[in-house]
Amino acid sequence: MNTKGNQRAVETENRIKYVFLNLLKEKDISRISVSEICKRAEIHRTTFYVHYKDVTDLMEHLVTEMYRQVVGLFVEEGKGMRPGGFRHLFELIQKHRAFFCTYMDALGKMDLTYDRLPAELKDNIDRIMPVMGYASREELLYHQTFFTEGLSAVIRRWIRRGCQESPEEMERIVVAEYRPNRKLFQ
């Protein structure tokens, strides 16, 4: 039986995602149909519907997976912050540029909950807040919102410009902007 989680189901999901990501390189998400995905993935429509409700649901699943993967670039479960997270993020974006164009569009239309923190941050919030200079959890959430929106804008600009700068250069730019010791308003 082809139930979610077994090897055949996983392979089918991966084929659907692969076809979908390739279609995103060719056209806007609004012009991609379930029929077209099924034809290229060589599966029946009913098989598609076992995994996803529609194309939007497929995109939402990919966005969720991508969010987990992006958080994993910065935070290693049980070990804290990983070095080089921004460089890895920009390498990932460069590799999957078509997806990230659509992803960033979808992100702009989604109701994001900035009150959600990565598990590693949430587990250590009482220890992290004073070290980072935040007086309350709410202040940290405002900071997270500000940083996330700013980084999203930088990523959109980089993608619009065709990812001209290297991932290393983009990491340097973001890290330079994020230095807490910058005296911007003096």
Rank of each mutant, 00 (worst) to 15 (best):
T3N: 13
G5I: 14
N6M: 10
A9S: 15
A9P: 00
E13D: 13
E13L: 10
R15I: 15
R15D: 12
Y18A: 12
N22E: 15
K27S: 11
I29Q: 01
R31F: 01
V34E: 02
S35N: 11
E36T: 03
E36H: 00
R40T: 05
E42D: 09
H44A: 13
R45F: 02
T46G: 07
T46N: 13
T46P: 03
T47D: 01
F48V: 08
H51L: 03
H51W: 01
H51R: 05
E60P: 05
E60I: 08
H61Q: 14
M66I: 03
M66V: 09
Y67F: 01
Q69T: 14
Q69A: 12
E76K: 15
R82E: 04
F86T: 04
F86Q: 03
R87K: 12
R87C: 09
H88P: 05
L89F: 03
L92Q: 06
I93A: 08
F99L: 15
F99Q: 10
F100G: 10
C101V: 13
Y103R: 09
D105G: 08
D111W: 03
Y114I: 10
P118R: 07
P118T: 09
E120H: 05
D123T: 09
I125C: 08
R127V: 15
R127M: 13
R127N: 11
M129N: 06
E138S: 14
L140E: 02
L141W: 02
Y142E: 14
T145F: 01
F147K: 11
F147M: 14
T148C: 08
E149A: 12
G150H: 03
L151W: 00
S152K: 14
V154M: 04
R156N: 04
R156V: 04
R160H: 11
G162K: 01
Q164Y: 03
E165Q: 14
S166V: 07
E168K: 12
E169G: 06
E171V: 11
V174E: 10
V174N: 09
V175K: 13
R179L: 15
P180E: 06
R182P: 04
F185E: 07
F185P: 00
F185Y: 06
Q186D: 11
